[in-house]
């Protein structure tokens, strides 16, 4: 049976990984290649690298560290952050990235999803969506690290992204991110029922039960966590063993 995936996420700045709470107060959590290898040994199913300071200035730097990751690890990895064109993706693919994730650039110009999907295949196009629930009771997409509302409703956007050829949805609830109080199960269960592509839950994992809930209630195919793993509150084997014992299909 297809396993549910556990995905550590590494926020990268200048070739090093950082992770803060609610996207502020960044702390240095170490060297990315070393951390990536440690996660592989622990049984991570995939890795995600988000280049949080991506700009045209550091594209060459990024190529270098993406290559280093590709040389070091033997599981799939996704690179995101500041990707806005077919050319950006082509360069990352040449360096060994398996998938790329796009976020604000896709909201700004949805055609980007179709272009990437056509050029590289839907399977490598992850559309990352940050969202919050606003006072009117609806979920809206956010950009700029969750600070700026786009006014675009979450479910409308996800539907459009899938229609345009997204191969996977990475959903982060900005209301839950960094709180360690559990994933946003309500929107996750709506999204997983709505779309045909795999969905990754992100934001809020704090204990093993949260992962179980994301799979059992949220219906997701994968669950992502960052600080929780970086600072060792939980290890991947702990999470996976718990899920296995609870009857979730997992790769040990």
């Amino acid at each position: 049976m297809l396993s549910k995936r556990i995905i550590p996420c590494l926020d990268v700045k200048d070739g090093r990984t950082v992770k803060g709470t609610n996207f502020v107060n960044l702390r240095d959590a170490g060297d990315i290649v070393e951390l990536a290898l440690r996660y592989c040994e622990q049984g991570a199913d995939e890795l995600v690298f988000l280049d949080i300071a991506a700009s045209s200035d550091n594209r060459a730097t990024r190529r270098e560290w993406v290559k280093n990751i590709s040389r070091a690890i033997n599981i799939p990895f996704t690179v995101g952050g500041g990707i806005s064109s077919v050319r950006d993706v082509e360069l990352l693919m040449e360096c060994g990235a398996d998938k790329i994730s796009i976020n604000s650039a896709a909201l700004a110009r949805p055609e980007l999803i179709s272009e990437l999907s056509y050029a590289f295949g839907a399977q490598c196009v992850v559309v990352a969506v940050d969202a919050r629930k606003e006072k009117d009771g609806h979920w809206y997409t956010y950009v700029k690290g969750g600070r700026v509302s786009t006014g675009i409703k979450l479910y409308d956007w996800i539907k459009q992204a899938c229609d345009r050829g997204a191969g996977e949805i990475l959903f982060t609830s900005m209301d839950h991110d960094g709180t360690h109080s559990g994933y946003a199960l309500e929107p996750l269960s709506v999204i997983t029922k709505m779309v045909d592509v795999p969905v990754i839950a992100s934001g809020g994992a704090g204990k093993v039960e949260d992962f179980y809930d994301a799979f059992a209630i949220g219906g997701v195919q994968a669950a992502l966590a960052a600080g929780l793993f970086h600072f060792g509150q939980l290890t991947i084997p702990q999470v996976k063993q718990y899920l296995k014992d609870k009857g979730i299909e997992i790769r040990l």
Binding site: R5, G167, P198, V199
Partner: peptide, 11 residues
């Protein structure tokens, strides 16, 4: 019924 692509670790 399942998600497409078939993505991840399978037996």
């Amino acid at each position: 019924e399942e998600k497409i692509p078939h993505m991840g670790w399978n037996d």
